[in-house]
Design a protein around this nucleic acid. Structure first.
Lengths: 195, 195
DNA sequence: TGTACATCAGTGAACGCGCGTTCACTGATGTAC
DNA sequence: TGTACATCAGTGAACGCGCGTTCACTGATGTAC
């Protein structure tokens, strides 16, 4: 049963978006193609009409995850809001809808160079857009904002990853999120970390 | 061929240590038991004389990885040295010998509660020992050192994970490591992030 | 516009393969006398 | 101390299973006339 071009393109998009979400939730090795394609509403054989391999799908899925995050960032009025959302309990509970750097960074570190190249582009864009917003908000005038953006990115991604690696009911999980959010907001004010 | 008790105990230790290294290098799902046991110098069947399942081995391996890191930390004269080692190119290149939080945090986040509980213990111990050293070195007197320890842990683990997720030859990898090391050292001095 | 035919996205059986796990067997160690 | 036997860590074949990938087939879409 041949399908219309529009329908086929829509299917391709749905496969990639489903992969983008499920890979962030379960890792690249945590979900098989059959289950993934079923979640996209198709059978597994159809994958190869759109992507050459699981690797190629992973590359596309990671690209889309970073793109999605990029659009998502634009929805926040200021950085304080953005940071709060990044470390919110909703974000911690739903990796499939949040930052791919925190969810898949470790997996990409063990992956092939193509995946790392996509990751580098996405991460670089995150850092540059953060630097631009630091400048736009007049944070720490005269300081090295690239340096600050890199440090904030590492802190926030690290905090999100660590908060998720601790049992939900362990106070340490919330503590990491809250303390690092406070720390990041203090970094915006440019002062030390006084009590 | 029965083996002496000492030999059996040595084998058990070797299996756990090999798993601790290989899981950090490849992730819990990135290596099979056959290859793992071969690396430990045994055949796969022998695993079940020591551990009930792959899950149980993962729990033991993660525990040992945190213990190893704990002993490792004691070898550094001060925190500046410790941080520099944590983000060194050697550490970035050899996840099997470095921090399990950075290497396996994302995997544990998708794992079962037993794994998360072990992770929480190991992470809590990291944070407490860091806080104790901050206090011992007289860093930011009067400040909330628990808060600082949590923020430093997230920044350093995040930086190590992100630096590894970028291609080795991409300058961004070194930049993340260098900028976050500088940032962490600046945090020790307690000042802002002036240029 | 209507008809005949080529195209090709999707289906689902089949492939070889490696996975975690089980188990009958081996034979040196540990123990009872 | 020496002998007979029970113990049990390690071996490797075998298990069912799900993996990624291939492919003959289907049939609606797209195209040529």
């Amino acid at each position: 049963m041949r399908i219309s071009k529009e329908q086929a393109e829509e299917n391709r998009t749905r496969i990639a978006d489903t992969a983008s979400r499920l890979y962030r939730e379960r890792g690249f090795e945590g979900i098989g193609l059959a289950e993934l394609m079923k979640a996209a509403g198709l059978t597994h054989g159809a994958l190869y009409n759109h992507f050459g391999s699981k690797e190629a799908l992973a590359v596309e899925a990671l690209t889309r995850a970073f793109d999605e995050m990029s659009k998502e960032r634009a929805r926040f009025g200021d950085l304080a809001e953005l940071f709060a959302s990044y470390l919110s309990s909703g974000s911690r509970a739903h990796p499939g809808l949040s930052c791919p750097a925190a969810a898949l960074g470790a997996d990409v570190g063990r992956g092939d160079d193509q995946l790392k190249t996509v990751f580098a582009s996405g991460l670089e864009e995150m850092i540059e857009s953060l630097e631009a917003r630091l400048r736009a908000e007049g944070v720490q005038p005269g300081a090295d904002l690239r340096h600050l953006a890199v440090n904030l990115t590492a802190k926030l991604a690290g905090a999100l990853m660590l908060a998720r690696a601790v049992p939900r009911d362990n106070p340490l999980s919330r503590e990491i999120a809250r303390q690092c959010l406070e720390g990041a907001l203090a970094d915006l004010r440019g002062g030390g970390t006084a009590p």
